[in-house]
């Protein structure tokens, strides 16, 4: 469709129906469409309601759980998150919120970790998937099954052991702890090989062979032949690799060990809700939630436009 971007496509609905049956068919089609869209609307409302609630509450001056639309509107919640000199009444006491809860620092931690992880993990995942798809080595199939089985255990089962290992190499606390965190996140990259392997399997092997005869080694084939054809799966892997550390709570809290300068947003926000009694922090929490979800949404909006179809068009018989 990219070619016709200067022109709106002409809609050709109902064009293929037989003239005789058209009225009955059209009626049936319309009712079933109506039903489907009603169900979809209800479901999407249920899905989106919490988010709308979150967005609206982030602008509320005082929190009242019973009302959806706040009575008093303010931007102070957002300001409190970032402005280190902004004083506000919190739990009936005046305090400078950004100094107690350094949200900016948390966000920075998270962004850095997520970026590094998404790049490294994408590379590792795709490379291992390519290896599983194309290379022939001993125990390949058994190894693939083993990884699938290991992947079924929740990650936190090995958390204690992982933590002790990190402790041995001095990557468990402080700023090095963040590197440790990156290490932990990317160490499981190979686990995600399955979808990308499936994609690589659909790319004709004779492309690899042609490149091999043209003089390419495995590395060149991967970067110059396979990667340009795999944009959709690269995007998918990047999204996956970015969101996992972005929302991780469990291991991040272990590494931070209470040091608020090492929190990521998930740990920080959780602290924000439980540490202080009462609900006066809730609007600020909502504001932080909105800010946290923005990067993910932007990422998704920009990258979703890649289509699988048509990418391999013309490569093989067609």
């Amino acid at each position: 469709m990219k070619r016709f971007k200067y022109l709106k496509p002409i809609k050709s609905k109902d064009m293929f129906y037989n003239e005789k049956n058209s009225r009955g068919m059209r009626f049936k089609q319309k009712t079933s469409n109506l039903l489907v869209y009603t169900i979809l609307t209800v479901i999407s409302l249920i899905w989106i309601l919490p988010f709308i609630y979150l967005v609206l509450q982030s602008f509320a001056k005082t929190y009242s759980p019973q009302v959806l639309i706040p009575t008093e509107w303010t931007l102070d919640n957002y300001r409190a998150l970032f402005d280190p000199n902004f004083e506000m009444i919190f739990n009936n006491q005046p305090m400078v919120f950004a100094q107690v809860y350094p949200f900016g620092r948390w966000l920075l931690n998270t962004v850095m970790i997520a970026l590094v992880v998404s790049v490294l993990q994408t590379v590792l995942t795709l490379m291992s998937a390519y290896a599983f798809s194309r290379l022939n080595f001993g125990f390949r199939k058994k190894y693939m099954k083993l990884i699938l089985i290991i992947g079924m255990f929740p990650g936190f089962l090995g958390m204690i052991i992982t933590f002790y290992i990190l402790k041995q190499v001095n990557l468990s606390t402080g700023v090095p702890g963040l590197f440790g965190l990156v290490l932990v996140y990317i160490s499981g990259s190979v686990m995600n090989y399955y979808v990308s392997k499936g994609f690589f399997d659909t790319i004709s092997k004779s492309l690899d062979e042609a490149a091999m005869i043209d003089g390419a080694n495995k590395n060149t084939i991967f970067w110059r032949v396979i990667m340009p054809l795999s944009k959709p799966i690269v995007v998918y892997t990047i999204l996956l690799a970015f969101t996992a550390p972005w929302g991780d709570y469990m291991f991040a809290s272990v590494i931070a060990a209470g040091d608020s300068s090492l929190f990521n947003v998930a740990v920080g926000l959780q602290q924000l809700l439980t540490k202080e009694s009462g609900v006066s922090g809730f609007p600020i929490f909502c504001a932080a939630g909105v800010i946290v979800s923005i990067p993910i949404m932007t990422l998704f909006f920009f990258l979703q436009g890649y289509y699988v179809e048509g990418v391999t068009g013309g490569a093989v018989k067609g």
């Binding site: 990418v311 013309g314 093989v316 018989k317």
Partner: peptide
């Protein structure tokens, strides 16, 4: 190759 194997 039979299926041409051109880089698309």
């Amino acid at each position: 190759f039979q299926n041409y194997a051109l880089y698309p």
